[in-house]
Simulated assay, not measured.
Amino acid sequence: MNIEFIEAIEQIGKEKGISKEILIEAIEAALISAYKKNFGTAQNVKVYIERDTGEVKVFAQKSVVENVENELLEISVEEAKKYNPRYQQGDILEIEVTPKKFGRIAAQTAKQVVVQRIKEAERNVIYDEFSGRESDIVTGVIQRIDKKNVYIDLGRVEAILMPTEQTPNEEYIQGNRIKTYILEVKKTTKGPQIFVSRTHPGLVKRLFELEVPEIHDGIVEIKGIAREAGSRTKIAVHSRDENVDPVGSCVGPKGARVQAVVDELNGEKIDIIKWSKDPAQFIANSLSPAKVTSVNVNESEKIANVVVEDYQLSLAIGKEGQNARLAAKLTGWKIDIKSKSKIEG
């Protein structure tokens, strides 16, 4: 190796964000293995690369002892003093043993190490970038579908959408662009693995943050989300400014904002509900689109008894109980719905 090689390492280090010293130390460590493999020695060796010239030297390391039992690893005090009179028992003596043909092996090994370290550095950069984005939303292109897993190209890395995170009846077509929610970023030997979701309530939250400036600016707050992916979502919102209507902000002019979210979720129904610190009011709101006559709450058991007009009962309960189920999930209350005629009867 030569001075050009050292300059190349410096340049690569700057481009990839790896220090020159780390690269050279990694090459030195790899050269010890290369030396032992090619020259079959049981000696303790140290490889040193001259930082300015790139010259590679191999040194055999021997312990200075009174009585030599292993000539490969030890040297007597008497012999050691021939190299330098200051050597004493317990010191380590280094004797240069650089083979003549070692330069070619060194260059080859160095190249492999640099390539490997660059790959590692790039993986670490990608990991650091995405590990800080868990619970965020990303847009990618569906690359392929393998064993029901959907692989999404995010640019420098691929994300995995597993079957458990796929929305029922949603079709995933190769080449289509798709927004997903980052669930987890794992560090593996093959690089970072990014797991994403289409079913997580966080996806709905992030989509509203993208579409509604008032949420992004912190004026309107999302207080809760209850979701049955692919079918229906209820989202509770609250305004920190009494002059701003939280529901209207999320619906948008002519329903444009909520429609953009619905379109991204392939037609999933979304009920936007006004949050209230009064549990009875919040529960009544959560059963929207049904109109509620009265709500009686049992604070200690967190049970709410709700009365609705007869014609509103099926709407309040919803198809297969979905409306009531999502309302209970959103509010954290057990909700018992009865019709007015049943109560009066």
Rank of each mutant, 00 (worst) to 15 (best):
M1C: 02
E4L: 13
F5K: 01
E7Y: 12
E7Q: 13
E10C: 09
Q11D: 14
I12D: 06
I18P: 03
A26P: 13
I32E: 15
S33G: 06
K37A: 12
K37T: 14
N38T: 08
T41G: 05
N44W: 06
V45P: 08
K46D: 09
N67Q: 15
N70T: 06
L72V: 04
L73Y: 05
Y83T: 05
P85D: 08
Q88A: 11
I95K: 07
E96D: 13
E96A: 09
R104H: 09
A107W: 06
V113Q: 01
V115R: 09
V115Q: 06
I126M: 05
Y127V: 07
S131C: 11
R133S: 08
E134N: 02
S135P: 00
G140W: 00
V141G: 00
D146Q: 14
K147C: 06
K147M: 09
K148Y: 11
N149H: 12
Y151L: 15
Y151T: 06
Y151S: 08
I152A: 09
L154H: 10
V157K: 11
V157G: 03
I160V: 15
M162G: 11
Q166L: 03
Q166W: 07
N169H: 14
Y172C: 06
Y181R: 03
V185A: 07
K186S: 12
T188P: 08
T188Q: 04
T188S: 12
K190F: 10
G191W: 13
I194M: 08
V196P: 09
V196A: 06
V196Q: 10
H200N: 15
L203G: 05
R206T: 05
E209I: 09
E209M: 14
L210S: 12
L210F: 12
P213M: 02
P213I: 08
I215A: 02
H216N: 13
I222T: 01
K223W: 04
R227H: 07
N243D: 10
V244R: 05
P246R: 01
C250E: 01
K254G: 03
V258G: 01
V258Y: 01
A260V: 03
D263E: 10
E264A: 03
E264P: 03
N266Y: 14
I273N: 02
W275C: 00
I283E: 00
N285M: 06
S288A: 14
P289M: 00
A290I: 10
K291W: 06
T293M: 12
T293F: 13
V295C: 06
V297L: 01
A304M: 00
A304F: 03
N305R: 11
V307W: 05
S314L: 04
S314G: 04
S314Q: 07
G321F: 12
G321I: 08
Q322E: 07
A324N: 01
R325Q: 12
L326R: 00
L330D: 04
T331A: 07
W333V: 12
D336Q: 12
D336M: 10
K340W: 08
